[in-house]
């Protein structure tokens, strides 16, 4: 039988592993709602992970690392926004190009900066549990003792849901993705909304990336995002472009990833490869439409 302790550990690690996906996913959701498909979430996350690690290592302050990670993604996000909106480039191709470029730059930069020190631990964030929740027996520490970025991510996700649903800015984002013509006639700039949305994706993805490097494991490895950005995009499709369902999808992918560590610990004999594959397999089944009809924004990937 599954003990309460191991269930608590499983829930805690599911949340932890879902966090980078959640941040990238929420960012991507806003951008897709505004009509821009960012295939470069992966590259944006990797930029944040790399610059955050370098910043934290150079200054000794994880919080400065976080700030540097967020700053470093701005040129990447601006490049994507410029390609997708001003140059009307194919959004998929330009995003994949950015991902290849970022993978090359971060791999090269990592070797040049860290070199032989590659296995060094980088200063990172400690863990924290909210006052009352942390005191719950068994579950308190295992589930709620997390890096504060996890709570920040959840708070931003909820705030994004409220902004999208109840504010004029949310309406403008939604309209830019559904009826850009109407937005233009109303006097708002479709491209300005879309630039803003892509920058938001960049910042959120970078936040997720810095969580990976200086929040979760306190080191950087080459290409450490390992497709998390693509999973985030799949989560948006799985979530049918709605915040609540996207959060659910990220938690599901996080839980699937957590099984990798949980099942072997429980003595269940399942091939490791199958467990590593599981989140991608779930994401594939999700985008394959096994979860009901998909209703993408009407003008997704169509430049204005």
């Amino acid at each position: 039988m599954i003990s309460a302790e191991s269930a608590a550990v499983f829930i805690g690690s599911s949340i932890r592993l879902a966090t980078p996906l959640l941040m990238g996913g929420i960012g991507e959701l806003v951008s897709e709602r505004a009509g821009v498909l960012n295939m470069s979430v992966e590259g944006m996350m990797l930029t944040g992970a790399f610059a955050g690690a370098v910043g934290s290592w150079a200054t000794g302050q994880p919080i400065l690392g976080l700030a540097i990670g967020l700053l470093a993604v701005l040129p990447v996000a601006l490049l994507q926004a410029w390609l997708s909106n001003t140059l009307r480039a194919n959004q998929i191709v330009s995003g994949i190009g950015i991902n290849i470029l970022v993978l090359g730059v971060t791999t090269l930069g990592y070797r040049e900066i860290f070199g032989e020190r590659s296995s060094d631990e980088i200063p990172g964030f400690g863990k924290w549990a909210p006052p009352l929740l942390g005191d719950i027996p068994v579950f308190g520490q295992a589930v709620f003792l997390q890096v504060w970025i996890v709570y920040l991510g959840l708070a931003i996700a909820v705030a994004t849901m409220l902004v999208l649903r109840f504010t004029a800015a949310g309406l403008a984002v939604h309209a830019a993705g559904m009826e850009p013509g109407a937005v233009d006639k109303s006097g708002l700039s479709v491209n300005r909304i879309r630039y803003g949305a892509v920058l938001f994706t960049g910042l959120m993805s970078a936040l997720g990336g810095t969580f990976l490097s200086i929040g979760d494991i306190h080191t950087f490895t080459e290409g450490m995002t390992r497709g998390a950005g693509y999973l985030a995009i799949a989560a948006v499709i799985f979530g049918n472009w709605k915040v609540g369902r996207t959060i659910g999808a990220c938690l599901l992918f996080g839980a699937a990833t957590a099984l990798q560590f949980q099942l072997p610990a429980m003595g269940v004999d399942i091939p490791n490869a199958l467990l590593i594959m599981l989140p991608y397999l779930l994401a594939f089944l999700a985008v394959a439409g096994l979860v009901g009809r998909q209703s993408a924004p009407a003008s997704l990937t169509v430049p204005w």
């Binding site: 390609l83 140059l87 480039a89 194919n90 190009g97 290849i100 730059v105 791999t107």
Partner: peptide, 21 residues
């Protein structure tokens, strides 16, 4: 480092995507 070749490839793809329109 082989990453240099990767950077070259990335720039080529981005440049071509941008030039298409």
């Amino acid at each position: 480092p082989s990453a240099v070749v990767q950077i070259i490839q990335g720039i080529i793809v981005v440049a071509l995507a941008g030039a298409a329109y």
